[in-house]
Simulated assay, not measured.
Amino acid sequence: MSFTTDPHDVETDDQREERIQQWRLSRALRDAPEIFAHVRALAISGRTERGDEVPHLDSPLRITAEDDIDDRYARLNEWVDYFAAQLTIAPPVVRIAARRHDNQDIQGFRVGVTPEGASVLVSLLTMWLNIHHEQIINHDQYLAYREDVIEFLGELSGRYPVDRGREKPVLPRPCPACGLPAVRAEWWSENTHDVKVACELCEEEIPRKHYAKILDWVVG
């Protein structure tokens, strides 16, 4: 017989927060290629944010989406450039596919890059960051890097959500305090027990000591 140990029983609050932030960075880098492909497809669709065609523009790009994706792509490249220089590690050759200004600052994707191409270019950057994660995590700018990447990739994902199809519905359960069916679970990482279970209406939070038995109740 095996038993599942709740990490809250052995972790300090600081350790738990560190683990959550590490997971968020990993998740952001993992999802980045798909998100960039999605936004690049929107950027070359030739429509405005409301879906209206804009034939008077010289470029068929959706300006807002193009600006957003170019800004995030440039920032991702900048972190790769920074750590490559700081750690004396060769950066990925994908950097030559970026559009640059006269002063060599990266401005975004080159004209003609397809959504599939954007995905490949971004994946090469994120793979480089993941491969050298152990060196990066020990650098004094690691926390700034982690916070920035989580923030700007999260903004891009939130502004242009990817439709991954219908997800398994999770029905709200009655709240033990107010009695209304508004109790939901919010997971903060891939660990089953790294979850907050609370009522969306009265904000009553279910105690952590009950998570082992309450998870089936909330998700079932």
Score class of each variant (00 low, 15 high):
176 P>G: 15
219 V>G: 12
135 Q>N: 10
140 D>P: 08
217 W>F: 10
159 R>S: 05
101 H>D: 02
16 R>L: 08
77 N>F: 07
148 D>A: 06
76 L>G: 08
213 K>T: 13
24 R>N: 09
155 E>N: 14
96 I>V: 04
160 Y>V: 04
171 L>I: 12
138 N>W: 13
120 V>T: 07
208 R>Q: 02
154 G>H: 02
181 P>H: 10
103 N>I: 11
218 V>R: 04
170 V>H: 08
177 A>C: 07
1 M>Q: 07
116 E>P: 08
2 S>L: 11
205 E>N: 09
141 Q>A: 06
34 E>N: 09
199 C>Y: 09
123 S>M: 11
115 P>Q: 05
151 E>V: 12
66 E>C: 10
7 P>M: 05
142 Y>S: 02
174 P>L: 12
71 D>P: 02
128 W>L: 01
132 H>M: 02
187 W>S: 05
109 F>S: 05
81 D>A: 15
183 V>K: 02
207 P>S: 09
214 I>N: 09
216 D>E: 09
175 C>N: 02
220 G>Q: 04
174 P>M: 07
24 R>V: 10
72 R>W: 09
48 T>E: 05
216 D>A: 13
204 E>N: 10
131 I>F: 14
100 R>S: 03
32 A>M: 03
147 E>D: 04
37 A>Q: 05
34 E>L: 15
72 R>Q: 06
7 P>I: 08
156 L>M: 07
160 Y>Q: 03
9 D>I: 13
186 E>W: 15
11 E>T: 07
12 T>A: 10
45 S>D: 00
193 H>T: 08
